[in-house]
């Protein structure tokens, strides 16, 4: 097995897209909790983690989810949006 083949089984590339359409790419491990990706995105975009909603395949991401659990594939997209609360 080549290094690339091993890499494919352990890692995958996903993108996070903001509500305004900017895309940020991440290489993540299939069995690492997505909290790491969520935190990294927030740090990079200067956002407060509690204010950001991450959606994948119709569901809201939980920090404890892993790509493996969600059957994520190479090239999949996660949508990020900043929560807003009406009435203030």
């Amino acid at each position: 097995m080549t290094d690339t083949a091993t890499d494919k089984t352990v890692h995958l590339n996903v993108k996070v897209r903001s509500a305004t359409g900017e895309e940020v790419y991440f290489k993540i491990k299939k069995n690492t909790a997505l909290k790491k990706l969520m935190d990294a995105y927030c740090t990079r975009e200067n956002l407060i983690p509690a204010s950001v909603r991450f959606m994948f395949d119709g569901n809201r991401l939980k920090p404890t989810d892993t790509p493996e659990k969600l059957d994520m594939e190479d090239g999949d997209m996660i949508d990020a949006s900043v929560e807003q609360t009406g009435g203030y």
Binding site: R17, A19, T20, G21, M55, F56, D57, G58, N59, E73, G75, D76, M77, D79
Partner: peptide, 15 residues
């Protein structure tokens, strides 16, 4: 389903 997860316009969802 595979294609939609990789590409859809902002604000849309479907699964």
């Amino acid at each position: 389903h595979k294609a939609f997860r990789k590409d859809h316009k902002v604000g849309f969802y479907g699964s």
